[in-house]
Design a protein around this nucleic acid. Structure first.
Lengths: 97, 97
DNA sequence: GTCGGTTACGAGCACCGTAATTATC
DNA sequence: GATAATTACGGTGCTCGTAACCGAC
């Protein structure tokens, strides 16, 4: 089971995957490098699997990380959709169709 | 956007929906009533919508809560699937097919 | 020296449990 | 009184930023 992962950790992972480095992800998210580093360390601990190959210019995702990333993407998309449905509900409640 | 909701909050919501009361959900999850109450208050704040009708014997979910619940269920299912895929990865790595 | 990731330290805040409170039966 | 939710209070622990540190170029 992959428990005690956090939504924020998954968002950070997504950003790391998009940018290829902790530093870039941090700057993109408005956090510091160290915060991202710790978040990803926590994610690795929660998953129980190494997620990154540390390289000269950032990190590369391991196969395990790719799995987590795709699950994270789907889960976050569901929450995104949920937000849109709620907006729709509010519109209907306000009489705007 | 429905941001700063927490995975734990969604799990609590799921349990509240299953049991019909904060107290029962709390007992089921091994937390206190007050913790569940605060979690759901935080969820309502994050969603920006009332989620529960407080009634004599617990709570009833509002339409907004049903939307959140179904999104939460799908998101949590994605993470569940992710956990299974990781387990599969580990098995393959260990030479067990 | 630079760049990128890690880690010790201190501070702030998030979240819990206990317990008191309110409200409905 | 019993049940169920809310809330004040205190304490623990999480997570952040700063800053120092460790490679690899």
């Amino acid at each position: 089971m992959i428990d005690d992962v956090t939504l924020f950790g998954l968002k950070v992972l997504r950003q790391v995957a998009a940018t290829g480095s902790f530093a870039a992800a941090a700057s993109e998210l408005g956090y510091t490098q160290s915060a991202v580093s710790r978040q990803m360390a926590a994610l690795e601990a929660a998953v129980g699997e190494q997620l990154f190959e540390r390289e000269r210019r950032g990190v590369r995702l391991t196969p395990a990380a790719e799995i987590v990333l795709s699950g994270a993407t789907r889960a976050l998309a569901e929450l995104e959709t949920t937000g849109q449905q709620l907006a729709g509900l509010r519109d209907r409640a306000a009489g705007r169709w």
